[in-house]
Structure formats: C-alpha cells, structure tokens
C-alpha cells in the first residue's frame, strides 16, 4: 500500500497504532503479573499491578480522544476508517481486561493467606490459555493477520470448558468441606475473570478480522461467516 499523501494524517494514524500497542502491551503484562501474583502469592506484585491500571485507563482516554480528532478532521475511509473503529472498540476491551487483572490481583491478595494453588490445578491452565489468546490477538493486530485472529476465536471454547470444570470442582469441594468455602469462592471468581479475558481477546480477534478484511464475523459461527460486513 503506498504512503499517505497527507503526512499529518498518516502520522496521526500511526500514533493511534502506537498508542494501541503500548496499551495492549501494558495490559498483557498486567494479566501475566496478576496470574503470577496469584500463583506465587506475591502481594507486592499484586499491588504494583493494581497501580498500573491508572495508566491503562489514561491510555483509553487518550486513544479515544485522538480517534475523535482524526474522525473530525479527516473523516477516514476504507482501511483507515477500519483502523479507527478497531481502536475505538479495542481500547474498551483492553481497559476491561486491565480491570479484570486488577480483580485477579485483589483476589491474589485475599488468597495469599490460604494454601498455594497447585501447578496442576486448572487456574494456571486457564491463565496460560487466556494469556496466549491476549498475546496472539495483539500479534494478529500488529501483523494484520486475520488467519491468526481466526485461530484465537476457537481457543475460547477451551477456556469455557475449563471454567465449567473449575466451577464444578469448587462446588464439590465446598459441599464436602465448609472450611473451603471462602477459598473456593475466590478461586471460582478468578476462573470467571480468566474466562472473561478470553472473551475480550476473542472480541479483539474479531475486530482484527474486520480491520484487515472488512468482514464482520461477530455473532456468527465460523461456519456461516459472512463474506462482507456491509453492502
């Protein structure tokens, strides 16, 4: 694709990309650190991660503002319009992902007084999948790779299955031993948030497909994926 004729416009679009990447990178680290804080019972790390959320919130505001300026001044079309709509939607997902990482950190602090999670438990498995989905969604954005984005969407099912299993296991444990109720509720909450992280990563992957191909696949199964978003 040739360069933009209007260099200021091109610079603003590039700035949107860079702001998204910076925000995504920060959120990706927050998620990784929140899970590490949980597994390793690292209260300091949990607190430092919670403090990062302010930066993520500010990134959302800054990106929204820049997108609004670009819409007002240049009225982008085609791939540029799709980038701006991608940014406007994705910052909302990223901001929510930051909030979920904060939630996990808060639970990590609460769970630090309970026995450590065993590596074989499903929470570490879920966190590995969720982190991979987030990382791959961001990579798909960087490389404008809609095929990778499609693969991410399929991984969400694994998280859903694991969440259902965690929910049942926690329920069984709590039913058999009332002293495990408090820990069980924390674990179930963390599992739910990891499952939601997968949902947000899926949203980003769907937006990557729209940004790259102009095809809106939301609310459709991949088998009945439409050819075009508009028309």
């Amino acid at each position: 694709m040739p360069r933009h004729t209007d260099r200021e416009y091109a610079a603003h679009l590039q700035q949107i990309r860079e702001m998204l990447l910076e925000m995504a990178g920060r959120v990706e680290k927050m998620i990784a650190d929140s899970v590490r804080a949980l597994v390793e019972q690292d209260v300091d790390l949990a607190k430092r991660t919670i403090a990062c959320d302010k930066l993520v919130n500010q990134s959302e505001l800054d990106t929204d503002e820049l997108c609004t300026v670009v819409l007002a001044k240049w009225q982008p079309m085609g791939r540029d319009l799709r980038l701006v709509t991608f940014a406007l939607k994705t910052v909302t997902d990223l901001e929510r992902m930051g909030d979920l990482a904060v939630n996990i950190c808060e639970r990590a602090i609460d769970l630090s007084s309970y026995p450590q999670l065993a590596p074989g438990e499903d929470i570490p498995k879920m966190s590995a999948i969720a982190q991979a989905m987030v990382r791959d969604a961001i990579d798909a954005f960087i490389h404008r790779d809609s095929d990778s984005a499609r693969r991410i969407i399929g991984q969400d099912d694994e998280l859903d299955i694991l969440y259902t299993k965690v929910f049942r296991d926690v329920l069984d444990a709590m039913a058999g031993d009332k002293t495990r109720v408090a820990r069980g509720i924390h674990v179930q909450s963390v599992a739910k948030w990891l499952e939601r992280l997968g949902d947000h990563a899926t949203n980003i992957a769907e937006q990557v497909i729209y940004m790259v191909e102009g095809t809106d696949i939301r609310h459709t199964s991949q088998a009945e994926e439409p050819k075009a978003a508009v028309g």
Binding site: P2, M77, G214
Partner: peptide
C-alpha cells in the same frame, strides 16, 4: 458498489488507495 461498502471495505486495492489518500 453500494457507497456503504465502497467507502468502508472496497474490494480493489486501487479503490482503497484512492479513498484513503494513498494515491
């Protein structure tokens, strides 16, 4: 094409280049 389609997701890269000012 319909204007909705052509100005958001044109099929031809030459159209894409023109409507986005990369011409």
């Amino acid at each position: 094409d319909t204007s909705n389609r052509l100005f958001t997701s044109p099929r031809d890269p030459r159209t894409e280049a023109y409507i986005t000012g990369r011409f």
